[in-house]
């Protein structure tokens, strides 16, 4: 497979996963907004939304105040926000367009349909209902695309690149969400009633609430929640699950062999798996946990870079 095509498949999957995740984060916040009545709390919530889906610092350069309409617009539509929903979905479509001869027709048609319907979406003076419908469309588009991929694509090289993109994106986002929530919990006093609310939020933001309450009582125990999101190997959005699946997919791609060109990649993934195995939540202070999550996010960036180098997705520097 052409390196350029592999790169497009990888980024199509990442952008689609990013859109879906950011759409959910915004959706969770829209519901919070209806329930909350404390302006201060609400503002802090909005800061977190920006931290998770974009960059709070970038936002503040452009807008001095936190106003919910402006933030919603920024996260959903802002052309200058590299990670806005419209941007991510448009990149995903562009990537799909460049790989039309490889991906199932249904994936392209789904992304194309979303793009064609974009001009009808109101970007100013929207109602909350309209935004929620928009977020729902993104979720459905992403899930339909994943469904078509799962049900029709041969488990070959293109499929692997799509899946690796999805898992890496998801692992990184899960870590980021936890990091932001931990930061918030750290600022609060231990044992405050808000704790229940934080861990519940964490589960909702990673789309793990339904799965969690099937295994644990609905009382939000910080240890249980953190363990579930970081280490639960059966939960497809946990950090461990994503890393294990990236590893498994690369092993299959390489037919179980390690060559000189793939050595670095295998080594890095093994190290990360070891770090997750060594992770001992019970023995950790909040600062340490946050250090672990920061470290893991850097690891994700490293994996992405070395993965791209291994398969020539990045132009090597020309030696003259």
């Amino acid at each position: 497979m052409l390196s350029r095509v592999a790169d497009s498949l990888y980024w199509m999957a990442r952008n689609l996963e990013r859109s879906e995740n950011n759409a959910r984060v915004l959706d969770v916040q829209l519901i919070n907004m209806l329930e909350a009545n404390d302006t201060e709390v609400l503002n802090r919530d909005w800061e977190e939304v920006l931290e998770i889906t974009a960059s709070l610092a970038d936002y503040q350069v452009q807008y001095p105040n936190l106003k919910s309409e402006e933030i919603i617009h920024y996260v959903a539509f802002e052309p200058g926000n590299f990670n806005s929903l419209v941007n991510c979905m448009t990149y995903a479509r562009e990537n799909a367009r460049a790989t039309r001869d490889i991906i199932p027709e249904g994936v392209w048609e789904g992304l194309n349909r979303f793009y064609l319907e974009l001009p009808a979406v109101r970007r100013n003076e929207f109602t909350i209902q309209e935004i929620q419908n928009f977020l729902n469309t993104i979720t459905m588009t992403s899930m339909t695309a994943q469904g078509v991929i799962e049900s029709t694509m041969t488990r070959g090289v293109p499929y692997s690149f799509i899946k690796i993109g999805k898992w890496l994106e998801r692992a990184e986002k899960t870590a980021r969400i936890l990091n932001v929530i931990c930061e918030k919990a750290r600022k609060e006093k231990q044992g405050s009633v808000n704790h229940h609310y934080y861990w519940l939020a964490a589960l909702r933001l990673v789309n793990g609430y339904d799965a969690y309450i099937k295994e644990f009582p609905p009382k939000m125990n910080a240890m249980h929640v953190l363990h579930f999101i970081i280490e639960e190997e059966r939960f497809p959005r946990s950090i461990r699950y994503c890393v294990d699946h990236v590893m498994e997919t690369i092993r299959k791609l390489e037919k179980g062999e390690v060559h000189h060109y793939s050595e670095r990649l295998f080594h890095l993934l093994e190290t990360i798996q070891q770090e997750i195995s060594d992770f001992n939540l019970e023995a950790m202070a909040m600062e340490e946990l946050m250090g672990f999550l920061d470290h893991f996010q850097n690891r994700c960036i490293q994996v992405s870079r070395i993965f791209s180098e291994t398969y020539y997705l990045i132009e090597p520097i020309e030696i003259k």
């Binding site: 497979m1 052409l2 350029r4 001869d101 020539y312 997705l313």
Partner: peptide
Amino acid sequence: AQQMGIELVEGRDLLVRDDVVYMKTIRG
């Protein structure tokens, strides 16, 4: 390209070395 089952390439996917044309794939 799709119907003939051949790769769809752009100029940046190809390179010429010793007067032979190659395409850049994930395996070299």
